[in-house]
């Protein structure tokens, strides 16, 4: 092959540059986030009742929809009480209810959201729990 001394290193450099996004992320972004639920309020709950407002699988997939419904319900209809599918009553409030239990916003909400690169702007206004102020 003519010029193989130039072509082969050239191909290698080319591949290295083209594949940069892959090797630079190797082992990094793939660490699955593990939201922590070891907050004082949750620790105080009896183990068998350590549940979210709705089943975990539903919360995982549907909490954004739920929060959206909550704020419309509270602000537009004045309804502030949520009755869950298990019949429990909750105060429909982001900062006074979700974050009462999930007071570790940085280790919980943010863990997932950073991994997924979603940036809810809610906390431009809603106040995060004190202990997590950076």
């Amino acid at each position: 092959m003519y010029n193989s001394g130039k072509i082969i290193p050239g191909i290698i450099i080319f591949l290295a540059i083209v594949l940069f996004p892959f090797w630079s992320n190797l082992g990094k972004a793939n660490v699955k986030p593990e939201p922590k639920i070891d907050t004082p309020v949750i620790q105080q709950m009896p183990v068998e009742e350590r549940k979210c407002i709705e089943p975990k699988e539903f919360m995982k997939a549907g909490h954004m929809q739920m929060l959206n419904d909550w704020r419309d319900s509270v602000i537009r209809d004045g309804n502030r009480v949520f009755v869950s599918s298990t019949g429990k009553h909750y105060n429909m409030s982001l900062q006074n209810e979700c974050l009462r239990c999930h007071s570790n916003k940085k280790d919980f909400c943010d863990k997932c959201h950073n991994y997924l690169a979603v940036k809810p702007y809610c906390f431009d206004c809603h106040i995060e729990p004190k202990e997590n102020k950076s």
Binding site: P55, F58, D77, S84, M92
Partner: peptide, 17 residues
């Protein structure tokens, strides 16, 4: 099934509102 939970969700005003 998923949206089912929210569609069935009941909300109400506070009883002392």
């Amino acid at each position: 099934k998923m949206p089912g939970i929210l569609e069935a969700a009941v909300t109400s005003p506070n009883s002392n509102a």
